[in-house]
């Protein structure tokens, strides 16, 4: 660039201006494809989605969807009315999703962090363990959910065989994919799928901790448990801030796991929001309502993310 500039220097003033625009515009040119694609697939559809939430878009209007009548806030009024059938079902689904997310994210984070800290020192077999731990994350989601669905079968599944016949914990085999247990089935699969990601991120975070810190504290007489509490955990704060947020968003929005496990309609105790909205949109063919629900979820996620980032950043700055 420097050389080409020098070559252009004797040219006219307008030539130099052109050069400057070219140079200043270059990063934008590089970004353009990414920007256009994000606009086409994410931002424009999202704006349409918000528009649709104000429309009465049912199957009747799907061929000519721009012609569907406006509903004003009608869809929103319907889905937040907790005394009506639709509103109370959404509220139930929201509560289920929150419980599911808190349990799954908390335990995934815990498993991943513990595993990463315990494999921080090198010992024989550590490489093999890492590979084993990452395998669940490498499998395609639908394949792992299908495997778990098989394991949770009533007659021929491994879980009932293990709990009932081998360990004798339950007095009779249980149903896992219907009734109350379906909630726990969902949580277990989600943890199995996501804890390796937490493991991967914490492992990466651990490599950024300078060895001197441990050596200095060892000279001062700190034991390993103290080191973990006083050095490792505080050093992981930055990684954890992002990790927990990403896990939260993934788990809250997770559609694949419940969809592959239960099909289009999940049993009530495991009726998470993503599948609930899919049901409202594509099974009951009421896209206006479905979109209104999605917009509410998006607002909720935005709020939680903003509060979370503000809270954790302040704590990090104070620390």
């Amino acid at each position: 660039m420097t050389v080409s500039l020098r070559r252009d220097a004797p040219r006219s003033r307008s030539g130099r201006l052109l050069q400057r625009i070219r140079k200043g515009g270059l990063p934008y040119l590089f970004l353009l494809p990414a920007l256009l694609l994000e606009l086409l697939v994410h931002f424009v559809p999202m704006i349409f989605g918000i528009l649709i939430s104000f429309k009465q878009l049912t199957l009747f209007f799907i061929r000519n969807w721009t012609g569907a009548p406006w509903a004003g806030l009608g869809n929103y009024r319907l889905v937040v009315d907790v005394h009506g059938a639709i509103g109370s079902a959404l509220l139930h689904s929201f509560v289920v999703t929150c419980a599911f997310t808190v349990l799954a994210v908390g335990l995934s984070w815990l498993f991943g962090t513990v595993a990463a800290i315990l494999t921080q020192d090198s010992f024989r077999g550590r490489g093999a363990l890492r590979t084993i731990f990452l395998t669940p994350f490498a499998l395609p989601v639908y394949a792992s959910v299908i495997i778990w669905a098989f394991m949770f079968q009533y007659n021929n599944g491994l879980v009932n065989e293990l709990l009932h016949n081998v360990l004798g914990i339950t007095s009779r085999p249980s149903f896992w994919l219907i009734g109350h247990n379906s909630f726990f089935a969902l949580v277990i699969i989600s943890i199995w799928r996501n804890w390796p990601f937490a493991f991967l991120c914490v492992m990466a975070g651990l490599q950024g901790i300078p060895r001197d810190l441990y050596e200095a504290s060892a000279i001062d007489g700190a034991g390993i448990w103290q080191q973990i509490r006083r050095i490792t955990m505080p050093s992981l704060r930055a990684v954890n801030q992002v990790l927990v947020l990403v896990l939260f968003l993934w788990t809250f929005n997770d559609f694949t796991t419940p969809f592959v496990l239960f099909g289009a309609s999940a049993p009530s105790p495991a009726d998470v929001v993503s599948i609930h909205i899919y049901n409202a949109s594509f099974i009951n063919w009421n896209f206006g309502e479905g979109s209104a629900m999605s917009v509410l979820m998006l607002i909720f996620l935005l709020l939680v993310t903003a509060v979370y980032l503000l809270g954790t950043s302040r704590r990090r700055n104070n620390a």
Partner: peptide
Amino acid sequence: QMFPGILF
């Protein structure tokens, strides 16, 4: 990354 896939 935050958008629920179902929305769009």
